[in-house]
Design a protein around this nucleic acid. Structure first.
Lengths: 199, 199, 199, 199
DNA sequence: TCATAAACGAGACGGTACGTCTCGTCTTGTG
DNA sequence: CACAAGACGAGACGTACCGTCTCGTTTATGA
């Protein structure tokens, strides 16, 4: 009983498994941000999590599975879709929310790492594909609302609009290496809003 | 000896060195298409080129350097920019030419491999960034011509228009994993043309 | 409860502990026979005994300790020493009784496993050494009786005679890998009897 | 040229492969003597040989294969068979030569290690079995000569005699753990000589 | 035409990381 | 309280690939 008190605050038996799991995921996410996917070793993740390498392998069969988990690719948590009452401001807010994730150096590296990992592992690839498919399709509601409001024609291609909206961000991140900014976001949103409206 | 004269100015007579070089690059490009960047080992490339591993390392200091070369990232060969007399058809032709490269399974893998490699190697990254920067900036001439023709306002952001144009292709290739088609190309071109024109 | 009375004197009432103990030992002995010492894992033993691994470790601190127990190395049960009235037949019967244990494939594996285990663990080594020391010294009575009968000189080295008697069996089992048979036993017994008598 | 001199005695790249091979085998043999088979790790062997772990695995596919090599089990070097002109002294010299190998603490451990390794690895087992089979059968010549000299009957079982001769040594080494000495060797030789002669 | 410098084939090596296995310990709940 | 269930630390195993090194051999060019 006295032992229990001594341990309070240091370790709370009962939640060890969960604690280990989150420690490892946290460590993986940090290293992903710091050094990127291919410069990240499972042993380093384990060390940073204060855990032994085999413990990591017990839960995640492979490096990509670990990264898939750490990158939250299977998360179902709904990303909030802007609803400002107008298409232009909806799209603007949407692009800005993505820019927020990939404008910092860490965010850039993390985002690139996930794409790289997805290209290296079939499973992780599928996970990321469905993650983005779901994310994009859920964003289509912005277009639907605009149609209801009469801002857009009824036959507007919601998916295409969203893809075109976020495309330039990834072109810069992955192809030209240029940075992205809120200003870029605003200009893209304006361009795409105009294109969709005048079709 | 007669051969020597024929080749003078392009490559040295005897040509073993040049032949080896091209064999290796060819093998690398094929493996890049077949198995992708991280599933490709330098030794495999050498074997497929009928050459020894050390010979590869003699010319290319590292795997990424080899891939950079094989992927033609340093090529200066000008990609033809469409000039059809109208913005809409220019952009359509431009997007279609990119789709042509990444619609086949091999093309998808090759394109993804280059992006992955660029993310893994700093040097290769810089090479690819400048490749795309140059490619995109040279494409701006389509917009410039449209401005001259009065199709677009004078303050149109050429770079943004091109980035937005090709963005959806890479979103599909790298994020959602969906395939791209000429039909998609046409719809994107139409959307962006409309957006640029009505701004 | 009535069971308890039946078991009194043999094992403690309640009996789960004793049953677990014997199940585990049985499983260990079987696996020793089936797969040998180093191919035997504690977890396999536990599984075969229908018991959890930690339960095994509660009783036996280490794999070798478990094996020591399973191999009956600490058993005090007296092995019957032949007493036929003549040295030749005593020795013959004695060798045959050992052959009986190591002539089958399972017996060979079990015997080898014990030797291996003894070489790997200091404690188990000591256990096996004293097991054999006691077994051999208790066999010396055959020689003593022969001396009393006048079959052997009074200064015969009983220990040496016994060691020489069983030596060829272990040479075959452990060094040459050849099998042993009753015929071999008979010939050894004859050779050693002759040697001891004519000294 | 001056470089060459500097390197003389330090490294002679011509014989590197052979030197590495012998260094590793030497290190393995030493560790076999020092800590025994199961307490020996390939990485330790590599470290002691001043070589990297992968280098060891390049030449020997597995730990047992390495040990088999280090223990000289495939050596064809003829062990000299005593030829003193009399059976008694031949056998005595023969046993003594074996005692010489397993009387020291290191020798004991080495010999035990080889037996253990042979029991753990099928391949190594076969190697050791044929090693001993050949060693014993080549020793039969001592018995043959004794038959020719008329010291032994023509139907003497050479193999059995040799096995009986060395048996007690291995009984002590592997079963009772007792040490062996030249005195023991002499007594065994005497006993077996007498037994063989008087049959 | 023949010497010589450059490139090549062959193959081992140091090094890093991967993913697997087993041992023996520890924690957490349950009967 | 002993046990089932199962995660954990520790550490060895054997594999794959990277990029380096040395040696001996072929090939191409220039004196």
């Amino acid at each position: 009983m006295s032992d229990a008190q001594v341990r309070v605050g240091e370790q709370r038996p009962g939640g060890r498994a969960a604690r280990v799991r989150s420690d490892v995921l946290q460590a993986a996410a940090e290293l992903l941000t710091d050094v990127g996917y291919d410069q990240l070793s499972v042993e380093d993740v384990a060390a940073r999590a204060g855990v032994h390498k085999t413990t990591v392998y017990r839960r995640w069969p492979t490096k990509s599975a670990l990264i898939a988990d750490a990158a939250n690719l299977s998360s179902e948590e709904a990303v909030p879709i802007p609803d400002t009452g107008a298409l232009a401001s909806d799209l603007q807010a949407f692009v800005r929310s993505i820019v927020a994730n990939i404008s910092s150096e860490g965010g850039r590296r993390r985002a690139k790492s996930v794409v790289v990992a997805a290209a290296c592992s079939h499973d992780l690839g599928k996970a990321m594909h469905s993650f983005w498919a779901s994310r994009l399709s859920s964003s289509a509601v912005m277009v639907d609302r605009a149609i209801e409001r009469g801002e857009l024609p009824a036959d507007s291609d919601a998916n295409l609009i969203i893809e075109t909206l976020i495309g330039p961000l990834w072109v810069r991140l992955l192809l030209t290496g240029e940075s992205v900014s809120d200003d870029l976001a605003d200009r893209v949103a304006k361009l795409v809003t105009a294109g969709a409206s005048s079709a």
